[in-house]
């Protein structure tokens, strides 16, 4: 993500999701820290099911999320979400359901603020993080790759380059 965009706030944000995601949204109702999720390109153009529509004026002011005031709080929430997601999706084969799980959706909704945590998780874990990263970064760094190690290396390199890790 363009570093200049990281400290922008938005006046209003509307999330639209397919019907299958409604459960996840309901559970996360009112908690989505959408001010962190800004897309540089049209998510739809990249084939994302999640669409972020941003209305209002972008203002160049620093606004801390009211929910996550410190990195410590984000870290605590992130790790709790990862734990819950792993536990509750362990028996699943369906990536549709695994990615639609409320905890995974909430991690994706962290946007840029969550990227450092996901990249750290990717470094130590072998799991399915590329799908979330694609949403959170607003770009698919591992596009066209079908090998885990190549995709992991590409995302970590991108993370270093953009000071996420």
């Amino acid at each position: 993500m363009n570093p200049n965009l990281q400290n922008l706030s938005v006046a209003a944000v509307v999330l639209t999701l397919p019907a299958s995601y409604s459960g996840a949204l309901n559970e996360a109702n009112g908690k989505l820290p959408v001010s962190h999720s800004l897309y540089e390109q049209s998510p739809e153009a990249q084939g994302f099911p999640l669409k972020l529509l941003v209305f209002g004026q972008l203002q160049r002011i620093n606004v801390a999320s009211p929910k996550w005031d410190t990195g410590e709080e984000v870290a605590k929430e992130f790790h709790a979400l990862v734990e819950r997601w792993k536990q509750e999706t362990f028996a699943l084969s369906s990536l549709t359901k695994i990615y639609a799980h409320p905890a995974y959706q909430r991690i994706m909704a962290m946007g840029a603020a969550g990227i450092p945590f996901v990249l750290k998780e990717l470094q130590k874990d072998q799991g399915h993080w590329f799908y979330a990263l694609k949403f959170m970064a607003g770009r698919n760094v591992s596009a066209g790759m079908d090998n885990f190690e190549d995709a992991k290396a590409a995302w970590l390199e991108w993370g270093y380059k953009h000071n996420y890790i």
Partner: peptide
Amino acid sequence: KWWWPVEGDPCAFWPIPIDP
């Protein structure tokens, strides 16, 4: 591989073209 139809996900494989 982990077989599931997800476009552009290095962790997902599908043996036929994915229905968009």
